[in-house]
Design a protein around this nucleic acid. Structure first.
Lengths: 191, 191
DNA sequence: GTTCGACCCTAACGATCGTTAGGGTACCCG
DNA sequence: CGGGTACCCTAACGATCGTTAGGGTCGAAC
């Protein structure tokens, strides 16, 4: 049985995703919990807490996905698995992922810096896969890996807008991956 | 000399992009105009007006970019030009583009439906280029054009987060295009 | 020289915001 | 039994929200 505290963060993620941080009032949160708004302050010390916790959970989950990728895998495989992981996280925790992408700028103070740093580090891990793939000869030697990483990160970060939970995200990720690796041009696949 | 009215919509786009719609108060707008907040209501009838106008301007500008693409061009060229156009709009009107992507959900009533429909139509025009390219044999016959269009739209819609004004957006667009067409794999480009 | 439109002011409205203080109930553990 | 912990209440706080009413100034047009 989930404690009221964790239930509150769940509802916060849901409402922040749906109406935005500034668009969600403490009263909305309280109503979702079936409680008077003053009562929430037995669990939190400010509304910012809820935003921060949602963001921290998102950052952790995304990073944990990359942590599960074996170091010894080929770089191309790491890219494929990273795409899979990312889409799976977005699908499994759509609310958290939505808030993570959309509402980070409403974080204040040190916490904001912390989350921004985690975001940046995530992007750099992805970029690293591409650099590795180029340097080890798995990818075109003339590959612009920064642009390639940006393309993958765009697809990943945009996913919350269209991904519907319950879909086979692995297959989706593989479709993206295939497209990126093979390209769209006719003669690239003699099929 | 720009009228105060257009200056107001400009400032609104800037502040909405920076702090979000709900994060921007009428007082903030008034301060940016060097005016008392009540005075704004000589120009608008509600805060929503400013959001709607920014959105409408964004929708119009993006569509106008596609309108300039010649019908008789090859589909692949249309895709390349569409990417160029989109990135140029984002760069030239970063505030408007940011609001267009981030704040549309705070529109209310009929206006919201109207803007959402324009968004959808824009996406469909892009998708059409890919379908055309596949059917006319410019692209792989087994191309999943929905996925390919989604990839391009992801890159386009995410651009507001990293694109800095003043950069050569045409070159950027071409890099994206090249990557998408040729793919990342080594043997796809015999150097 | 008066009328008109564009522009801005002050002052206040009712509503809602996030937050606090202080008190209360119910259950578990010693 | 006593103490603690988890949870919720009512009532209010000062601040800020979007919006309105009514009045005022200025320059251009007729």
């Amino acid at each position: 049985m989930p404690s009221r505290r964790t239930e509150l963060t769940r509802q916060a993620a849901r409402l922040f995703a749906e109406k935005g941080y500034h668009g969600t009032s403490i009263g909305d949160l309280a109503a979702a919990m079936g409680v008077q708004k003053g009562s929430l302050y037995a669990h939190i010390s400010s509304k910012q807490d809820l935003l921060y916790e949602t963001m921290a959970e998102g950052a952790h989950t995304f990073h944990a996905g990359l942590d599960a990728i074996p170091d010894e895998a080929p770089a191309t495989e790491k890219i494929r698995l990273a795409l899979r992981s990312h889409l799976r996280v977005v699908s499994d925790q759509l609310d958290v992922a939505t808030v993570f992408v959309q509402e980070w700028r409403y974080l204040e103070g040190t916490r904001r810096d912390e989350i921004v740093a985690l975001r940046r580090r995530y992007e750099e891990r992805i970029r690293g896969y591409f650099r590795e793939g180029r340097e080890l000869g798995e990818l075109r030697s003339d590959l612009d890996d920064a642009t390639a990483a940006l393309l993958v990160l765009s697809a990943a970060n945009w996913a919350y807008t269209w991904l519907q939970p319950g879909r086979d995200t692995d297959a989706l990720a593989d479709r993206f991956y295939d497209l990126l690796v093979e390209g769209m041009r006719g003669y690239a696949t003699p099929a």
